[in-house]
C-alpha cells in the first residue's frame, strides 16, 4: 500500500467535491425549470448562484481525479469515486425533503454492493507494486 494515504485523501476529497456538485446541480436545475434546449434555459441556469457551486465541485473533482488516474486503473477508481451516492442520498432527504423509498434503498444497496465487489476485484488483481524501482524509500 505504498499509495494508501494518497488514495484515501484523494478519494475523500473527490467524494466531497462530487457531493457539492450534485447538490448544486439539483438546485441549479430546479431553479431553471422548465427544461428546454435553448438560450432561455441556459440563462436561467447561469443566472442563479447554484451553478457556480457545481462548477467549483466539478473543477475540484477534475483535478483530484486527474491526479488519481495517473496511478489507479480507470474502472475501480471510477467505482470508488461513486460512493458519493451515499452522501448525496442522505443529504437529499435533509435538503430536498425526499423520501428514501424501499425501492431506492434496495437499488442503493445493490449498487453499493456492486461498487464494493469492484473494489475487491481491484485489490485482488493489483499486481504487487513493481518493487519501488525509482524510489529507494
Amino acid at each position: 500500500m505504498k499509495h494508501g494515504w494518497f488514495y484515501l485523501i484523494g478519494f475523500a476529497l473527490l467524494m466531497s467535491f462530487d457531493t457539492l456538485a450534485q447538490i448544486s446541480f439539483k438546485y441549479a436545475g430546479d431553479h431553471a425549470l422548465p427544461v428546454s434546449a435553448d438560450i432561455a434555459w441556459l440563462l436561467r441556469v447561469f443566472g442563479a448562484p447554484w451553478i457556480y457551486g457545481a462548477i467549483i465541485g466539478y473543477i475540484g473533482s477534475f483535478f483530484t481525479w486527474m491526479s488519481l488516474l495517473k496511478y489507479a486503473p480507470i474502472g475501480p477508481a471510477f467505482a470508488a469515486s461513486h460512493l458519493e451516492v451515499v452522501s448525496v442520498m442522505l443529504l437529499s432527504v435533509w435538503l430536498f425533503n425526499e423520501h428514501l423509498t424501499p425501492v431506492r434503498l434496495i437499488g442503493a444497496a445493490l449498487i453499493i454492493a456492486g461498487i464494493v465487489c469492484l473494489g475487491f476485484a481491484e485489490s485482488r488483481e493489483a499486481p504487487a507494486e513493481p518493487a519501488a524501482d525509482a524510489d529507494p524509500a
Partner: peptide, 21 residues
Amino acid sequence: WIAFLSLIPLSEGVLLGSINI
C-alpha cells in the same frame, strides 16, 4: 445532467447515474 436532475428527485437521479460505472 442539470436538466436530468431537475426532472426527477436527486436521490433517484444519482442512483440511475450509477450506470456510468
